[in-house]
Structure formats: structure tokens, C-alpha cells
């Protein structure tokens, strides 16, 4: 097992290098550069002066050197966990990440827990009631949820559930500035103004209140997807001989389903977690943009639109690392859950 993990971790290095080289190459080949983007807002000046400032800034950010040299120096810094400075925010990228990463992780972990909490019972029940009304209805509803575009759901939630808390004005779509008093849910952000001055419990309540709509957006697709997988895995196992044996022994139905069939259905569900996490990270770009949540997704979006090279590279690296860790954890959990699988012999 240890050698397997070691080998996997070693294999991660070329993958990461590949990801960063691709993103680095794209950002340098593409027309436009962050200096001209940031100078677009600096008012009028004569051409010579502007050229001088431009050259000085290019030199400051090291953009005047050949691309290979730039990549090598970037890599040299990253090995020492130094992602450089953000050109837009004028701060260290590592500080930005330290601020933004927990937000996205919290959001996604809460969503993941809810996804599993809902989809396991629904999937099991659908498999048990195979072909009956619950099964058919749930599969149609799940497919509908699965096809719902996140951005549409987000827009509609903002439209209908951020207005004043009264049925009379429901769905009128007032701009937030015009809304007075209590609202259903806040349309944007992670906490109310001055929330940091609140004691812990009200602060937590405020934070959760802000998280309801974004988490809802992140949850429903994964839930629909996972429930279908649970149902499929359970159906496979319920048709097996050992389930018939368990029933013939006279075990109670809950025991047969939960202790015998379900335990064997867990295995495919573990690998799905590895695919769910990166997909949720991608989904959080959209959700964070819609709800203006200052997380990694919004950071990535802003970095990409502003050509903030260092931030783009940092986000690519971190997203890649998270993906790889997710896949690795999935595989390890797979080996733990199923003793028949041994990675040391195979491969």
C-alpha cells in the first residue's frame, strides 16, 4: 500500500507539471498582457511616458524575459510555495488563496455532505421499489434535476427568494437597494455587514443564512447524479445470489438491504466522490459568480478576466492538486473498502 501511494504521488508530479505548462503556455501565447489591462484604468498620459511605465512594469513582473525563463523562475518560486504577487489585487497570491480557499472548501464540503445524506436513502429506496411508482417518479425527477442548468437555478433563486419576506411582493424582482426590512435570503456575499462583531452563535446563523441558496445550487445536480448511481449499484447487488441467501436465512428485510446489499454497493460510490469533487469545484465558479461569494471560483474568474497571470497559475496549480488528491483518496478508500483490491500486486 505504501509503495502504491508513493508511486501515485510520484506520478502526480509530471501531471502537475503538464497542467501548469499548458496553462502557462496559454497565458503567454494569448494576445494581451496584464500590464496593458491594469494601465487601461490609469487615465491619460503621453505615449512616451506610457511606454516607459509599461516597460518598467513589464520588467518588474519579469514579463520581458523569454517564456521558458519565465516558466523556470515561476516554478522555482512555486517549489518554495511562493506564488508571486497578484497584479490586480496588489497583494501576495498566497495570502489571497489563504483567504479564498477555505470559503470554497466549506461550501463544497457542506454540499457534499448534503449530497450524500439525501442521495443514499433516495437511491436505496428507488432500488428497493424497483419498477414501482417511487422508482419511476424519482428517476424522472432526478433526471430533471440533473438537467437543470446551475446558472438558471441561481438566477431564479435570486429573483424569487431574495426579495422582501412577505407573500404580497413575492417574485417582483426588486433591486437589493430598494429592499427594506426582512428578506427571504441575502442575494450576495457570505455574511451581513458588521457580522464579525456578532457573538459566535448569531454569526454562525448569519453565515448559514447566507449559505442556503449557494449550497442549494451546488447540491442538486450532484444529488441527482449520485442517487442514480446508488440506485444502479443497489440494483446490481439486489439481484445477486448472496442476497437471496440472506433472505432465505430469514433475515429481516432492513438487514438484508442495509447490511448485505448496501455494504457491497458502497464501492462504486467511493470512486464517484473523486469525480464529484472537481465537478463541484467547477460548479462553484458559476455559483460564486452568481452569488458574489469571495471564494476560489470567483478568484479564478476575476484572474482570468484580468489576465492576472500569477493568480491564474496559482489557481490552476491548486485546482490540479485538489483534483489529484481527490483521485488518490478515492483510490485509497477503494482499497480500504474492498479487501479484494490490492494495488501492490496489480499494475
Amino acid at each position: 500500500m505504501t509503495t502504491y501511494i508513493l508511486r501515485r504521488v510520484l506520478l502526480m508530479i509530471p501531471t502537475l507539471l503538464g497542467i501548469t505548462i499548458v496553462v502557462f503556455a496559454i497565458s503567454r501565447i494569448a494576445p494581451g498582457d496584464p500590464v496593458s489591462f491594469s494601465m487601461g484604468t490609469s487615465g491619460q498620459m503621453d505615449a512616451q511616458q506610457a511606454g516607459g511605465i509599461r516597460a518598467a512594469r513589464m520588467k518588474l513582473y519579469g514579463l520581458d524575459k523569454p517564456v521558458c525563463v519565465q516558466y523556470a523562475s515561476w516554478l522555482g518560486h512555486v517549489v518554495r510555495l511562493d506564488f508571486g504577487d497578484s497584479i490586480k489585487h496588489r497583494r501576495k497570491v498566497s495570502e489571497l488563496i489563504k483567504e479564498r480557499l477555505p470559503v470554497t472548501l466549506t461550501l463544497n464540503l457542506i454540499a457534499l455532505v448534503i449530497v450524500y445524506a439525501i442521495s443514499l436513502p433516495v437511491g436505496i429506496l428507488a432500488a428497493v421499489k424497483h419498477g414501482r411508482f417511487f422508482d419511476r417518479a424519482s428517476s424522472v425527477i432526478l433526471l430533471m434535476l440533473w438537467s437543470l442548468p446551475v446558472m438558471w437555478v441561481g438566477q431564479m433563486l435570486i429573483g424569487y427568494f431574495t426579495g422582501p419576506f412577505s407573500p404580497a411582493t413575492f417574485g417582483q424582482g426588486l433591486p437589493p437597494a430598494q429592499v427594506r426590512g426582512l428578506t427571504w435570503f441575502p442575494p450576495a456575499g457570505l455574511s451581513s455587514n458588521y457580522a464579525e462583531q456578532l457573538p459566535f452563535l448569531p454569526w454562525l446563523a448569519d453565515r448559514l443564512w447566507h449559505l442556503v441558496l449557494p449550497v442549494l445550487c451546488l447540491t442538486y445536480t450532484g444529488f441527482a447524479y449520485l442517487a442514480k448511481q446508488v440506485r444502479a449499484a443497489m440494483l446490481d447487488n439486489l439481484g445477486m445470489d448472496y442476497v437471496r441467501t440472506a433472505r432465505a436465512k430469514g433475515l429481516s428485510e432492513p438487514t438484508v438491504i442495509l447490511r448485505h446489499a448496501f455494504r457491497n454497493s458502497i464501492i462504486p460510490l467511493i470512486t464517484i466522490m473523486a469525480t464529484l469533487l472537481p465537478a463541484m469545484f467547477a460548479g462553484s465558479v458559476i455559483v460564486e459568480k452568481i452569488f458574489s461569494i469571495p471564494g476560489m471560483g470567483l478568484l479564478a474568474f476575476e484572474a482570468v478576466t484580468n489576465r492576472d497571470y500569477n493568480v491564474v497559475m496559482a489557481v490552476a496549480t491548486i485546482a490540479g492538486v485538489l483534483n489529484l488528491i481527490g483521485l488518490l483518496l478515492g483510490d485509497i478508500a477503494y482499497a480500504i473498502a474492498d479487501p479484494r483490491i490490492s494495488f501492490d500486486r496489480a499494475v
Partner: peptide, 28 residues
């Protein structure tokens, strides 16, 4: 097959959506 599948696995670990928005945002 072995080498190819390792490469395919490596490609699957790429954060695709981020790569797509990077490319689409950086090019016309």
C-alpha cells in the same frame, strides 16, 4: 495500453472547466 492509460488518467486530472475558461478568456 499501460502507458496510454496513465496518460489518459493524467489528462482526466486536469481541472477542465478552469482550463476552458482560461483559454476562452485569453483568446479572442
Amino acid at each position: 495500453d499501460f502507458i496510454g492509460m496513465r496518460i489518459v488518467e493524467a489528462i482526466m486530472a486536469i481541472p477542465v472547466f478552469f482550463l476552458i475558461i482560461t483559454i476562452v478568456a485569453f483568446f479572442p
